[in-house]
């Protein structure tokens, strides 16, 4: 099977008035169609830098990134812009919605930028908002929505053009743990039902444990990898309660 996105010995070194910061240090990773991958690491470990490389938002200093087997560095700027508009959806910690547009319009504008046909632009925004549980809130402005609701709009917007890859940078970072948990549940559902490929970076192990595969990042390097499985809540609860009596 060919991965959706792959990095080969990829580096990102920022030059800062003479001093240089090695943010991403020779990372090799491959994400397959339909996977939900979490990259977990402390602040400054290079999560956002890596995600920007995956999303064709930044150029690596060395090494390469391949999207569906196509090396990004061989593409023109126009091709990369096109890739970002059509094939990659982004979710950010701070939601990044346009403040003067309603939830519906925020989703619609993404479709417009993605060059969707008129019929699609009319029907799809509401469908997507319903999908994320915000149908009744479609006409609200971002400031009239809670943080959790705004992030749901951001998910709907990110999915507008049916991207092959959904990238999320600390999507629950500004949410309390309960709202965060329901948002992760939603991402997981979308991943399962639509076989949507998701790569999420976070510093929160709890958030990461919703993914199928967790990569641990430290100082710009992958230090560990775990595949999570099983839905055996019974065992975990049994162990807990056994301890208590």
């Amino acid at each position: 099977m060919e991965p959706i996105i792959e990095t080969k010995e990829v580096w990102k070194v920022y030059g800062m008035n003479g001093a240089s910061v090695e943010a991403v240090c020779g990372i090799d990773l491959a994400v397959q169609q339909g996977e939900f991958v979490a990259i977990v690491g402390p602040s400054g470990s290079g999560k956002s830098s890596l995600l920007h490389l995956l999303g064709a938002m930044d150029h690596p200093t060395r090494g390469e990134v391949l999207f569906g087997n196509q090396p990004l560095h061989k593409m023109s700027d126009a091709q990369r812009t096109d890739l970002r508009a059509h094939q990659i959806g982004f979710i950010f910690q701070t939601f990044n919605l346009l403040p003067n547009l309603s939830a519906l319009e925020n989703v619609e504008i993404a479709l417009r930028l993605g060059g969707a046909a008129k019929a699609e632009r009319q029907a799809r925004p509401l469908e997507l908002l319903e999908r994320v549980g915000l149908g009744p809130r479609a006409r609200h402005l971002p400031r009239q929505l809670s943080g959790g609701e705004r992030q749901r709009v951001a998910i709907a917007r990110a999915l507008a053009n049916r991207p092959r890859l959904l990238l999320a940078d600390e999507p629950t970072g500004n949410l309390d743990s309960k709202t965060g948990a329901s948002l992760l549940e939603l991402l997981r559902q979308i991943n399962r039902q639509d076989r949507q490929t998701v790569v999420m970076v976070t510093h929160d192990f709890r958030a990461a444990s919703h993914a199928d595969r967790v990569l641990v990042l430290r100082d710009g390097r992958i230090r560990g990898e775990t595949r999570l499985q099983g839905q055996d809540t019974h065992r975990a609860l049994g162990q807990l309660l056994a301890l208590e009596l």
Binding site: A181, F205, R206, S209, G224, L228, G230, Q231
Partner: peptide, 22 residues
């Protein structure tokens, strides 16, 4: 340490599911 982290992450996942169902 790496093995222990795997075990803890797996438990965390199961408890997350338990938290949703309880």
């Amino acid at each position: 340490l790496a093995r222990q982290r795997q075990a803890y992450l797996q438990q965390l996942r199961e408890l997350n599911l338990a938290s949703a169902s309880q």
